[in-house]
Design a protein around this nucleic acid. Structure first.
Lengths: 228, 228
DNA sequence: GAATAAATAATTGTAGACAATTTATGTCGC
DNA sequence: GCGACATAAATTGTCTACAATTATTTATTC
């Protein structure tokens, strides 16, 4: 019942997941063009399957579909980036507050185990796992809050955040840092709702602060976008 | 810049919107089978377009796609129904609190105009408009909060709520009632965040309370589901 | 030599046909 | 007459070929 696994049963979900993962891991950079035929060959599926996957990814905001031009890894604007963080603060501060009142011993154990896993991955220098686990902590909070719907929303927000980080991150490293997660966990353990909310809010602010969201230097790879 | 209009530009979005509207208006009842060819003929489009629209509707939780059996208007379970209301409370209470601090005179005017419109529609006995406007008030709050992302989430939640109401509503009438909306608006006007949050929370509770979410009498139209 | 315009090439969008699966109908045996 | 099995119909899932659009290259003219 691990909610991290994103059911790779059907072939079409497989191509969706593989592209999703590549974007979440930041191997596919924003602005990258995704040709349908090329993807079809890589994954050994028909072009129709690729189109379905791309359509779903567009719905999740990870790729942008331009009519008669093709699919590109999305390049969220600074406004959109700020909006995503706003939405995360709105939802996640509410959820941690609720968790303070409702968390079971088992919940706390799972969160503790997760933070340890994050530490281990970071210590081992496994950047791929670090990025995934870092977002996974936030998803775990959504899961423990007991709302499948909000968990889906959070999954969407976390993956979009990954894209935003890939685009606007200038200084320092990629992930949240397990220390702040540990602090939030400690507040939840103490059932200190106000502190947990404050810490989560601050944590997301910290993440947003790492970004270069000044509108002046809209970086891009696409010559089309550079040369007006 | 009215956010209620759901861009019916492309043909595929048109069929999506027309089905979406029929469900939101509760003309299409939960469990109704949606044959692709039939829809294709009705809308005078190819079956591929219908499939795209159905796929998008499934992603929004309004339609359930069963492999090799077809598409059906979703029949959300009582757990899912409660989850939707939980999500709405989580998000909307946060948003009204924020609005209390940030609402401009223009914002207040728009909300006031909307409540009046609701009253007029209800007085005129226009049930279709009443249902739409009733959800529209909640969407307006999302819009004025200035978060396009959360507005999209709210739109999804409101349409799912409409489906839930169609399924589980037993007594009294369909919509929210403009009086409670007016009360919320009054609290926002007075910048009383705590009261606004409380009223919104109570309002959604009231809505949920109108439903018959006892798990015992899972109503359905599909013979398959009735006769095990 | 530079800019514009036409032609060619590449890519996406669409539709129609075919295959796989499920549902309904009819028949045979009991 | 009732139930199980086989056959037929209907519906969905998938793929391939073709049309529409856009990008690139080449040729022509100023």
């Amino acid at each position: 019942m691990n909610s991290m696994e994103t059911s790779a049963d059907t072939p079409q979900m497989d191509v969706y997941n593989r592209i999703w993962l590549s974007i979440a891991e930041r191997k596919l950079k924003p602005g990258t063009r995704l040709k349908e035929e090329q993807l079809a060959e890589i994954f050994s599926v028909s072009r129709a399957r690729v189109r379905q996957a791309l359509s779903a990814l567009e719905h999740d905001g990870l790729v942008t579909l331009v009519p008669h031009r093709g699919a590109f890894v999305s390049q969220p604007s600074t406004e959109e980036a700020r909006d995503i963080f706003f939405a995360r603060r709105t939802i996640e501060t509410s959820l941690v507050a609720r968790l303070c009142a409702a968390a079971t011993a088992d919940d706390l154990a799972r969160m503790h185990a997760h933070v340890e896993e994050e530490r281990a991955a970071r210590a081992a220098g496994d950047t791929k796992a670090t990025i995934l686990l870092s977002g996974g902590f936030h998803l775990l909070i959504g899961e423990l809050a007991g709302s499948p719907y909000l968990w889906e929303v959070l999954r969407d927000l976390v993956s979009r955040t990954s894209l935003i980080m890939a685009m606007y991150q200038t200084r320092s490293q990629a992930d949240c840092g397990p220390d702040e997660h540990a602090e939030v966990l400690e507040a939840i353990r103490n059932a200190d709702a106000a502190r947990a909310q404050h810490l989560m809010d601050h944590h997301l602010d910290h993440l947003e602060g790492k970004l270069d969201l000044d509108d002046t230097t809209e970086e891009t790879n696409d010559l089309r976008d550079i040369l007006s």
